[in-house]
Design a protein around this nucleic acid. Structure first.
Lengths: 228, 228
DNA sequence: GCTGCTTTGTGAACGTGTGCACGAGTGCCT
DNA sequence: AGGCACTCGTGCACACGTTCACAAAGCAGC
């Protein structure tokens, strides 16, 4: 009867895939699918079936042999494990191009991450309204975090302002940060940070493009420039 | 004399970190730093020093024992390895919130990924100008890809249109895709796809928040709903 | 040139993640 | 009731990634 105190730790790689399964399962549920096999789920998610089963087994034994997984129930379990049973208000720092796009992107609210507020340090931007959310001054951050109970902050500032934004978020009481600025943020150990860097993604693609193109075609020896 | 034909394969994990080193090195170079140790680079990049050395060793033995790495030379080597010695024009499909933000974000061009064009399927959006780039109709995609020599495509459409966008990009001749839509794209094996999913990132943060909050506080038994 | 200090490059140990293969459980059909 | 087809859950082996630890190599000072 007692809730499980000894929460089994779920591997990072699995945590990263659960949201994908969740989305697929939700879609399948909407299409009227009641049961789904690991094989089918793997196909839709672009992964290996054994991996799907192992991932799901960390949540508990929620499948039925010979049948598969009950979609609705699995959705419920994944949502519970990911903490998606209630909303997580998000506060955005930086009302530039990206901040505006994020605030305007309705997908956040729908998926349980309503925009609690968006702030900027530039007085000129304060007061303007983006898709129903009014930009407020960064000094109001602590108040927004407190009243809206926001625990996730998004850094959408230029690189030069990112560390300051992160410091302010931490001081305001935020415990998780999603960082879009191309900087490694220094934060207390207890704060969870995830980074999304578009330039890095493009450069990784560039590596593969270049590799494909024949690799070392203009790789001229290893002549060291100037120096020495 | 002959360029190295047998290109050593660089581990994915390393490729993903090289852009980070590159950015740090470029910054340090701008600040007048000539030499840098793996220790310092590790500190700035938030990683382990041994990892830095191992990563860099895949490029060749470009360090000097007792001294460190020559910043300018290392920048050159990483850029060469990542294929950043020339520009990689990028074509964006989808002129919604995200597409606009991406086109407007100057950082791409600066880092060697100029926006070759942005297209949309919606006639109403065609013709409008976003930060100097005119939105064109998606039917012009093949022509843009050909004339601008774009090999990287960005999918910035809603989920429902993403697969179609990817198909069109592939048909137009693009060989790498950066996908922002929350969908697993089906593409030919030869096409390199990278995915950026904001909702997934937030859900991973949610998992950690929920875990921090005490985990299974409302985890009431394992009563299965309806079924059976 | 020799000594001592610094820092690289890498072998080896360890940990994490992946995928196969198969036992075990479930439902259906006869 | 028994047999069969199907699918889960997981032990095991392997691949990949990370970290430690240390020999090799360079530099500076005498």
């Amino acid at each position: 009867m007692a809730p499980e105190r000894t929460r089994r730790r779920i591997p990072d790689a699995t945590v990263a895939r659960l949201p994908v399964y969740l989305r697929i399962l939700t879609e399948q549920g909407d299409e009227g699918v009641d049961n789904i096999s690991s094989e089918r789920l793997a196909e839709l998610g672009g992964v290996n079936a054994a991996k799907v089963r192992k991932d799901l087994s960390y949540l508990g034994s929620y499948g039925t042999r010979g049948v598969g997984y009950e979609v609705a129930y699995l959705v419920y379990q994944i949502r519970r494990e990911l903490g998606l049973t209630h909303d997580w208000p998000v506060v955005i720092v930086g009302a530039g191009n990206l901040g505006q796009a994020l605030a305007g992107y309705g997908g956040f609210g729908e998926r349980g991450f309503p925009v609690a507020g968006i702030v900027d340090i530039d007085e000129a931007k304060v007061g303007s309204v983006l898709s129903g959310v009014r930009v407020r001054h960064i000094d109001e951050l602590p108040q927004i975090v407190r009243t809206k109970r926001a625990s996730i902050g998004v850094v959408a500032t230029p690189a030069s302002a990112a560390q300051d934004a992160a410091d302010r978020l931490v001081r305001a009481g935020v415990t998780s940060i999603l960082n879009f600025a191309p900087v490694v943020l220094a934060v207390p150990r207890a704060i969870e940070v995830r980074k999304v860097d578009l330039a890095v993604e493009l450069q990784i693609l560039s590596y593969h493009e270049q590799r494909r193109a024949g690799g070392a075609i203009h790789a001229v020896g290893t002549t060291r420039p100037a120096s020495a």
